[in-house]
Deep mutational scan, measured.
Amino acid sequence: DETGKELVLVLYDYQEKSPREVTIKKGDILTLLNSTNKDWWKIEVNDRQGFVPAAYLKKLD
């Protein structure tokens, strides 16, 4: 059920640097789980959840 889920576009590649982070690729469109922290957003990638720098993402309307 995708209702109410926010999507984000990945602006730059990011390689995870800790187990709490996930790797993302430029151009991916992913589900945003939590954006309350202005610097690190929690997203879902391939059934994995983790954090990436918010500056690497853009919210889609």
Rank of each mutant, 00 (worst) to 15 (best):
D13G: 06
Y14C: 01
G4F: 13
I29P: 00
K59A: 06
E21G: 10
V52H: 01
K38V: 11
T31H: 12
Q15S: 10
D28N: 08
E21P: 05
K38C: 08
P19D: 13
V10S: 04
D39W: 14
L11D: 01
E16Q: 11
N46A: 12
K26E: 07
N34S: 12
K38E: 10
K58G: 05
L9E: 09
Y56F: 10
E21H: 04
S35L: 04
L7R: 15
G50Q: 04
E6S: 13
K5V: 12
S18E: 09
T31I: 15
E44L: 10
E21L: 03
R20M: 15
A54R: 13
T3D: 13
L11R: 05
R48A: 06
E21N: 04
L9G: 03
T3Q: 14
L30F: 09
D28A: 11
K58W: 11
A55R: 14
V52T: 02
L11A: 03
I29V: 10
F51W: 15
L7T: 08
Q49D: 07
L30G: 15
D28G: 06
R48F: 06
Y56G: 06
E2R: 04
Q15K: 13
L57A: 01
D47V: 06
F51M: 07
I24K: 00
W40F: 06
V45T: 13
R20I: 14
K59W: 06
K17V: 08
K38A: 13
K17N: 11
L32M: 04
L11M: 09
A55V: 12
L30K: 02
V8I: 05
G4D: 11
D47H: 12
D61L: 12
E6C: 12
W41D: 00
D39G: 09
A54H: 04
L60R: 04
V8M: 03
K38H: 13
L9F: 08
V52K: 00
T23I: 03
Y14K: 01
F51V: 06
D1A: 15
L9K: 06
Y56P: 01
R48D: 04
R48K: 10
D61G: 15
K25E: 07
G50A: 07
D39E: 12
K38I: 10
V10W: 01
S35T: 09
P19I: 09
Q15W: 13
L57D: 01
G50D: 02
N46R: 12
W41V: 02
K42V: 13
K26F: 05
E16W: 06
Y56R: 04
K58M: 13
Y14E: 00
E44V: 11
